[in-house]
């Protein structure tokens, strides 16, 4: 790794240096292709984000792909019902690595206003790993753009080698996650225990 001072000194002289890693991540973070699907009203905001006024194309992410094989990013835009959850997980499994997930809106991150409902999944992160959560009901396009920029920062910080490299570069870590199926009363399993455990609440009188 090059010394930052030397790098800026060279830059003043007109010599630009980079690493393969940052070049690779630069290319990847400026061509994030989302999967084209929306689940509820958040999808309307997602569509607005891609249109001329908010212009997601500035981030290289306007190419919404209709096939999971060509997509890098899954935007879970809306309420994930228990009927839909297996399909969402299966689509995530079918995406090629490296793949990222933005959980957009209150429903996708926690169930939102339907959290007490019997038929709504209380957050997609119970089944698949989520990289960026956006609160809001629905989040404004600016919030989605902020999520994109956050994701870009995450990708820029990913290392190609070493023990801290991301999941997709570690051959032993899984690319697919178990797809739940419909049970008698709930999804089976109701959550992926490797992905998500209920937060422990400690009650004490003190």
């Amino acid at each position: 790794m090059m010394d930052a001072g030397l790098k800026s000194e060279l830059q003043k002289q007109g010599v630009f240096t980079t690493t393969l890693e940052s070049l690779y991540n630069w290319g990847r973070r400026n061509s994030i292709w989302p999967l084209q699907f929306g689940l509820a009203c958040c999808a309307i905001e997602m569509i607005a984000t891609t249109m001329a006024r908010y212009d997601l194309a500035r981030f290289g992410a306007e190419v919404f792909r209709p096939s999971p094989r060509q997509a890098d990013l899954m935007i879970v835009a809306g309420t994930v019902t228990k009927k839909m959850a297996p399909q969402v997980v299966r689509l995530y499994n079918q995406m090629a690595e490296p793949k990222y997930v933005i959980a957009m809106g209150a429903c996708a991150i926690s169930g939102g206003p339907f959290k007490q409902g019997y038929n709504v999944l209380k957050g997609i992160d119970r089944f698949i790993p989520v990289d960026v959560h956006i609160p809001g009901c629905p989040p404004r396009p600016e919030a989605l753009i902020h999520a994109f920029m956050t994701l870009q920062q995450q990708i820029a910080a990913q290392e190609l080698t070493g023990p801290r490299r991301p999941r997709h570069l570690q051959p032993e870590l899984p690319s697919e996650f178990p797809v739940p199926r419909y049970g008698d009363h709930d999804l089976v399993p109701p959550k992926n225990p490797d992905r998500w455990t209920a937060p422990a609440i400690s009650r004490s009188n003190s």
Binding site: S67, R69, L91, E176
Partner: peptide, 20 residues
């Protein structure tokens, strides 16, 4: 070196609409 293949049952499935 930098893109280990991770095939699986879902990923190798022919159908790509999310349903089986």
């Amino acid at each position: 070196y930098f893109s280990p293949g991770k095939p699986g049952a879902d990923k190798l499935a022919t159908y790509e609409c999310g349903l089986e």
